[in-house]
């Protein structure tokens, strides 16, 4: 038993973190164009490093690591506000590979094809099966070829050209493109049921990892600011009101990181505990990211409310990520009905 990353896993994490820090600093979003966060060439570069196929078995054309390594990578992607459509690419490659669409899987794995990610509109639930019907809010459809649609029953990969665009929307998160699309008995390119492969739960783990990245990034910024900012002749971090906010933020991070590691293992190894752990993880990750980001605004004071600092981007992203792969309410329902693990 060892819940911490191995040396090899730590290396994956460090490499990703260094690369993202150099190539995609969040600070850059304050001075340059905020969209697209990831252009076509950049996606190919990430794909070239094996990031899309990192958790896919090599027999299916992937790098051959597992969900734990994928989760470590996505926590870093979340920290650098990389688009959640990367989760779409990872799941799309898996869905295509599991269904034997090798060429399609390969083109997604090498970044040639772009995949968007969607959530259902809560006012009009959609059907996701071998055909899809209903309205979807789609993130990063601009320039995408496919769209990944999932719910707890299954996962569908659909060609974007087979759906109709209903509208162009304005996204709360300025780094993301948001559109509304409609399917009407639209045939999917491939469909996998939840029993065949836990695509939805894997996506839940990866989005939770991105939420952890937000919780940790906003903690780090808050601690740095609390040490540097002085009022009443002292760093504001010496005041217990601020110090205790930061302590609570760090416990939320510890709690979610531990649960992320734990759930990334049980989902692969103990199918009976998987849903309880995965849903517990997402519910806790949403809470941690949102509470930490919201608290970070308060700690940064008036400046935290402006677009001159990057805190607002984390606040907004934490909301977007709750809407993908099940809200807090949805997952808490799952937690309540899950059987006790052995």
């Amino acid at each position: 038993m060892d819940l911490l990353p191995t040396e090899e896993q730590q290396q994956i994490l460090d490499t990703a973190s260094n690369y993202l820090g150099n190539e995609f600093p969040v600070q850059a979003l304050l001075t340059t164009a905020q969209r697209p966060r990831l252009n076509h060439d950049q996606l190919k570069q990430l794909a070239g490093m094996g990031w899309i196929g990192i958790g896919l078995p090599d027999t299916l054309g992937g790098v051959g690591y597992g969900l734990s390594e994928e989760a470590l990578l996505f926590a870093e992607l979340g920290r650098y506000l990389m688009p959640p459509s990367l989760v779409g690419s990872v799941l799309a490659a898996r869905t295509a590979a599991v269904r034997g669409h090798d060429d399609l899987a390969h083109a997604i794995l090498d970044g040639t094809l772009r995949v968007a990610i969607a959530t259902q509109q809560s006012s009009a639930p959609a059907t996701i099966s071998p055909t899809v019907t209903g309205n979807f809010l789609v993130f990063e459809a601009e320039g995408a070829d496919y769209i990944m649609l999932t719910d707890d029953g299954g996962a569908a990969l659909v060609a974007l050209s087979d759906l109709q665009q209903v509208s162009q929307e304005r996204c709360m998160d300025p780094t993301l493109d948001l559109t509304c699309w409609r399917g009407d008995n639209t045939t999917t390119t491939c469909f996998v049921t939840a029993d065949q492969d836990a695509i939805f739960l894997r996506g839940t783990v990866l989005i939770s990892a991105m939420l952890l990245g937000i919780a940790e990034a906003t903690l780090q910024r808050s601690v740095d600011y609390a040490q540097a900012r002085e009022q009443f002749g002292k760093p504001i971090g010496s005041f217990q009101s601020i110090k205790h906010y930061c302590a609570e933020m760090s416990i939320r991070c510890e709690c979610v990181r531990a649960m992320l590691y734990y759930a990334s293992i049980t989902l692969q190894q103990q199918p009976s505990a998987g849903p309880l752990d995965t849903s517990s993880l997402k519910a806790l990750a949403i809470d941690a990211a949102q509470e930490n980001a919201n608290t970070a605004v308060q700690i940064h004071g008036g400046m935290g409310y402006t677009q001159e600092m990057d805190i607002h981007l984390f606040v907004k992203r934490a909301q977007v990520l709750e809407s993908l792969f099940g809200s807090e309410r949805f997952h808490l329902r799952q937690v309540l009905s899950a059987a006790a693990p052995p």
């Binding site: 819940l3 649960m259 590691y261 937690v335």
Partner: peptide, 9 residues
Amino acid sequence: RSLLAMTLM
């Protein structure tokens, strides 16, 4: 549930 994971970590 996370208390278990935190303890093990």
